[in-house]
Design a protein around this nucleic acid. Structure first.
Lengths: 210, 210
DNA sequence: TTAAAAATTAAACAAATGATTAAAAAATTT
DNA sequence: AAATTTTTTAATCATTTGTTTAATTTTTAA
């Protein structure tokens, strides 16, 4: 049984090949524009195997969607709940980690955000997204900094919007910005690397301003 | 001929009804997830009339897409090329105008950005998006401020990314942020209203930092 | 080695979907 | 008022697309 060789060796199980192909195609084109035949072709397998292993396009999508969301927020949860790092350090790590991640997989943000818009329920139910922020060490540190007068804007949601906006938006608007700046992937990625250092500086300056 | 009554009166031409319905449905669901039958139903017209007036779903989409992009950047062009306003004032106006616009039509950003990702060519060819920024009064003012040492980050693309990121990203991530903050449309829109005043302050603080 | 189970394939099905047709209705022109 | 043009409708078509079926091949277990 091929299926049992999943973890070891160079050859991947059919199930894993399908999932990997589904990830690629769903991320690139979104649910609605993805054909099951696209996935089968990308995976190099017979179309019927998709339904054999995953029942339906919908079911397969839910798996990919969940894994993508979970993977994305897992790292953030770890960083935001580190007791030992300062607020500034958390900003640095979030910026650095996510810029690296999204350069590797640039389709993820717009995929996540579009699909969440289409089915907000899927997200709301399955992931403890609220407590990720509101129960975090980050949240406590932010409150302390506000109380100490080090951060002028008291709402942590503005902090999150600003941080994620500075990190994620350039990727979401990538094609537009590349056209505006007349640059290609290489130049764009260099700009993103620059932002790893700049975003923490910018965030600190913003939070002190009023 | 109904068609000639387009401009005047309360009753709208069939053509206009279809366009308006197409705008609503395309903006909400995107090209791939939109059925021509959805548009016909939204417009309250017979399905065949869509093809009678617009030949195809694709052609209708191109019209909506072009008008949406043009409408979005037209205003920005006006603001960025105002000889009489300062850089700070431009930031205020862009923030204010776009926050108002996107509160009215919250689907526009993610619609534009997703569809641009799927067909970058459509955008690149039809709209003079590069000169909108790079030939603008804003661009000259930015350069001057950099030369005068008032802005530390020399690349205007970072400035645009930051400004648009702070304005647009919260809307793109709307459902996610509402869930995080446990707020509804009302509370969310109030946060966005707050940002009209904060974004110019933040941007100024950021640009001075290094 | 043989029987059973699992995996794979080609073919086909049914529903959805974009588009067209031909006839009817409404509006405009003569 | 009659003829012509434009608009609208119901029905239908041709493809696409998600899924299933039944047969075949491969793998596993006895």
């Amino acid at each position: 049984m091929e299926k049992n060789k999943k973890e070891k060796g160079l050859d991947v199980s059919t199930e894993e090949k399908i999932k990997e192909a589904a990830r690629v195609v769903f991320h690139k084109k979104g649910y609605a524009a993805t054909r099951t035949r696209d996935i089968a072709e990308e995976a190099g397998i017979n179309l019927a195997l998709l339904n054999y292993y995953f029942r339906s396009k919908e079911k397969l999508f839910e798996i990919i969607m969940f894994e993508t969301l979970f993977g994305f927020f897992q790292n953030m949860g770890l960083v935001l709940n580190d007791e030992k790092s300062t607020l500034q350090h958390k900003v640095e790590r979030v910026a650095s980690n996510y810029i690296d991640l999204i350069i590797k997989e640039p389709d993820i943000p717009i995929f996540m955000l579009s699909e969440i818009r289409n089915r907000p329920d899927v997200l709301l139910v399955k992931l403890p997204i609220r407590q990720l922020i509101m129960n975090s060490v980050f949240f406590q540190q932010h409150r302390k900094a506000v109380d100490a007068g080090k951060i002028k804007e008291p709402d942590p949601l503005h902090f999150i919007m600003n941080l994620l906006g500075l990190i994620v938006f350039p990727f979401v608007a990538g094609p537009l910005l590349k056209e505006m700046g007349n640059i290609r992937d290489e130049g764009f990625n260099q700009l993103m690397q620059d932002r790893k250092k700049m975003i923490p500086v910018w965030i600190e300056a913003m939070m002190k301003a009023r």
